[in-house]
Every structure is written in C-alpha cells, then in structure tokens.
Design a protein around this nucleic acid. Structure first.
Length: 460
RNA sequence: UUCCCGAUAGCUCAAUGGUAGAGCGCCUCGCUGUUAACGAGGAUGUUCAAGGUUCGAGUCCUUGUCGGGAAGCCA
C-alpha cells in the first residue's frame, strides 16, 4: 500500500515524502500568518489530511481563498510532522490545483450536521459526509470478510439467478418481471406471450438453487441482491437488499450453528481490527457502547436453547409482554430482545421451532412437531441469521410441500436432490444490511445501503 | 397495512387566531498554527398542496402528498 492517498499521508512514516493528493475539500480555515489550512478527504480513511497552503503560492489569492467545502483538488507537496495538536502529519503544498468548484450557495452538503432524513434526499452526495463515508468503508470490509471467511474454508462462491420462476418461501410477495405493457391494456395477451413464456419474478432467496450446488460440490455460498415486495415500512426492511446464504452438504444443525457463530465473530473481529477509526466514530457519535457490545458478542459463546426452552424462560420471566407467549406461536421482537438483551445479555441461538411457523424445507424432528430451524439473535438487532437443516427425505418433504399448498411437480428439480444421491445438508441466510446495522450502530437500514429501495420510494 | 408524530429561511427549529424569528450555513470585515475555530455586521421566506371556518390562519377544521417513530411480515 504505497499509494499516495490521505490514509497513508496521515501516517508518521510518510514524513519527508513527496505526495500528490487528489480529493475533496471538507473545510478551509485561513490564518493571517500568511497561509490557509485545507482539510482534504479522498475516501481512503475516516480522518482528513491537513494541507498547509502558503500565500506564496501563485494562485493563493485567485483560487485558494475561494475554495470551499466540496471543491475537488489536486495537491502536490511534502509530508511534514504537524507542529500543532490534532494530527500527526500535514501536507505542505507546493501546488494546489482546483479541479472542480462547488458553489457554497447551492452546494447542499454543508460543513455541519445534517439529519439522516435530509441526507436521504441527497443520496448522491451523502457519501461525502463523515458518517456515510464510514458506512461505505465498513460495509466494504464486511463484504470482504464474508468472502474471506468462506474462501478460506474452501467454499465456492455460486451466483444464483436473480430472475426466477420459483417462489422459494411459498409465501411473501415477489416482484413480477415482465416486458408486457400493463399501462397499455390493448397489448396485453397471455403470460405465454411474455419474454420468458411464463411468469417470472425477482428472487427472494437463492437458497433452493444454492442447495443444488451444495449437493454436488459440498460447500457453497451465495452473495447477491434479493427482493421482497412486502409492504414493510420499518427501519429494518428494504425491498432490495443483499443476502449471504451458505449451504453445506453433510452438515447437521449443530454444525450449521458452529458455522454461523464463527462467521459472525469473524465479521466483528475484522471490522474492529480493520476499520478502527470508523468504528471509533460510530462509538462516539452514533451509538455509545457499540464497541463494548460487539466485543461481548465476539468473546462470548453463543447460548443455544430450543424454542420450547425459550418459551419457558419467557413465561417465567415475570415480564409483561404486549404479545402473549405460548408454545406454537412465533416469538415477537419484544420476546427475542428480552432473551438476547435481558436474560442472556449476549447472542443466543434458538432452534427446533414448531413446524407450523417455519418453511416447508426444514427437516422434521422425530417428535413430529418441530423442525431443525435456527435463529441467531443478537442484542439491539434481534434476529440476524435464520437457517435450518434441510429435509432430505423425499416422502416427508413432498408431504410438507403439500401441507404448505405447494405443488411438488413445480419443484421437481429440487426434489431430484432427494431422489439421487441425497444427503443431509444445512445452511443459513444473513441479511447484509442488518449486519451493517449491527456493526455500525446505524439505526435505520436506509442509511447502510447507498440507494435504499422501500415501498413508494425508489429515487435516484 | 395499522397506530402516533411532523412539514415555517439553504439546514435544524421557534412563533396565545393579530407585523415571520433564532442558531448554524452563506457573504463582508476583524483576529488567529487553525482544526465543529473565534468576534462584529449583512442578505435570505409561495409557512407542503387544495379546500373550509374567521374581520383576520404558520396557528383551527377536512382531504391529499411526503417524512419520521412504533407494530405486523421478515433478512
């Protein structure tokens, strides 16, 4: 990393070296001592590089004194130790070239605090702020950790289709993909006339296709965009989000839990180690106690209890919940948060849920009432991972599909995995944006993806 | 989708039914190895939209639009 960027220029080992820095001005402060301070950011680190621009520069009066927040510049100079507090190094400019001006009367990114609500209307410029720069870097690190984690374990990265004729969950609304013009009814004919000759949708999960590759190649993961047309208006839902879905042949639910736990811990460890300055910012300005909470999750063994045990704990908790706790009912957010935040004060994995509240493909237990499902709950977020051991027995799977109102013949290829060389296998899904929320402490999911897509809103 | 809250200067917000305000940002000047710099002065308004009540509406009523919070669904 001998690149000439702000991140390296800020390090003491760069003192004495000649640098060319290309970036955007955050602030300018003039000194009547005969020079100006410029704070430059180029995205390579959270902190800015302080530049000293002396009034002996030929364009000092004509350009430099007019530089404001948002201007792009190319600056050449030598890195020196900074005589004042606040930064280790500074760049003493030999030349300052303004590449692009930013009119301070119309430029919407001001030097000081904007609300996240306002910045959402400026999604194209918000990456120039401290917060969104930090989110982008941490999100990138998480994506890298995801690939590193699985690649180092020998998983294959599989790209499952985004346009699909199958409905993975058997529930939930999907986005229809069509070339038919619904605004012009005269042209509408039949579904067979559509581009693919049948109804197709944007994927809600790559799991089923992922299973086919796991049942051939052993260990795989998918990592791509996912779409849900649910009318969910919350700080934790997007219509378009990114999901990671590992799938491992021959794994059972316990091995699935082990994988999920080490996976989460790897992401946390990398974020703390690789994004220290960004994480410190989130700790100080976004969520107090964030780092301590992450270290708690990193250092604690995840508690593992069955759904049935969880129901008993909640019933005996003495807490009054808005929603009733009863075996057979799904746990509500308040219940999950009580378990992760109050009762265990740390991450919890719940498993063996009633079959009625879980998907058809989860393996039925011998009790006939529960399935090999698991949810990983963490403090502050609640469910961050959901997964299961898959049903590998053909007859039971067919029966459960029919019980869920699905036609087994529509899933002939999925059932073939059970007909030919079938094996136990297990996997889980992690929503990337929820993971970014968990790591950064950002309260609203719309602020951890560059261009959020939510019901009634697809700007930019 | 349900419930609650909100919409006023570029931004964040004030304003008993009676003359439209402040802080920040911006501009000018001053001061300073400054760093959310500081001090003084200045410019800035279709009060979200459409109706209604009233002598008079930013303020009250109705509808709509947009935003936020909580819940449900989930990742």
């Amino acid at each position: 990393m001998a690149m000439e960027c702000v991140a390296s220029a800020r390090k003491a080992e760069s003192i004495g070296k000649k640098f060319t820095i290309k970036g955007w001005v955050r602030t300018r402060r003039d000194s009547k001592g005969g020079f100006s301070f410029l704070e430059i950011n180029d995205g390579s680190s959270f902190g800015n590089l302080q530049v000293i621009a002396n009034n002996t520069l030929q364009n000092y009066q004509t350009d430099i004194l007019k530089i404001g927040t948002g201007c792009s510049v190319v600056i050449e100079g030598v890195i020196k130790g900074s005589p004042a507090k606040g930064q280790e190094t500074e760049l003493v400019a030999d030349s300052v070239q303004v590449v692009g001006w930013a009119d301070p009367n119309t430029y919407t990114m001001q030097k000081k605090g904007h609300t996240f609500e306002y910045l959402r209307t400026q999604a194209h410029l918000r990456p120039r702020t401290n917060t969104f720069g930090a989110v982008a870097r941490v999100r990138n690190q998480i994506s890298k950790s995801i690939h590193d984690f699985f690649q180092e374990k020998g998983f294959l990265y599989i790209n499952t289709p985004i346009i699909t004729p199958s409905d993975c969950e058997g529930a939930g609304h999907m986005f229809r993909v069509t070339t038919l013009d619904f605004l012009n009814p005269k042209t509408i004919a039949k579904a067979e006339d559509d581009f693919f000759g049948k109804p197709v949708f944007l994927t809600v999960s790559g799991q089923l296709e992922g299973e086919t590759y796991a049942c051939a190649l052993g260990k795989i993961y998918t990592f791509g965009p996912t779409f849900r047309a649910e009318n969910s208006n919350t700080s934790r839902h997007l219509a378009e989000f990114w999901m990671v879905e590992p799938e491992v042949a021959f794994n059972d639910l316990i091995q699935n839990m082990d994988l999920a736990e080490s996976f989460i811990k790897r992401i946390i460890r990398d974020a703390l180690n690789q994004c220290g300055e960004d994480m410190q910012f989130f700790e100080e300005r976004i969520e107090k106690g964030l780092i301590q909470n992450l270290e708690l999750v990193l250092n604690k063994d995840f508690q593992r209890i069955s759904y049935t045990e969880a129901v008993e704990i909640l019933k005996n908790s003495g807490q009054t919940f808005e929603f009733e706790v009863a075996w057979g009912k799904d746990l509500q957010s308040e219940h999950e948060r009580y378990l992760a935040e109050k009762h265990f004060n740390g991450p919890v994995i719940l498993y063996d849920y009633p079959k009625e509240i879980k998907a058809f493909y989860m393996r039925l237990n011998d009790d006939g009432k529960t399935v090999r499902a698991m949810d990983v709950l963490v403090p502050r977020i609640g469910e961050i991972i959901g997964g299961s051991q898959r049903e590998e027995r053909l007859e039971i799977l067919e029966a459960r599909m029919q019980g869920a109102g699905l036609k087994p013949e529509d899933y002939w290829w999925y059932l073939d995995l059970r007909r030919f060389g079938g094996v136990p296998h297990a996997g889980f899904g992690l929503g990337l944006e929820r993971c970014v929320q968990f790591i950064t402490g950002m309260a609203n999911i719309r602020d951890v993806i560059p261009y959020p897509r939510t019901p009634g809103s697809a700007d930019f």
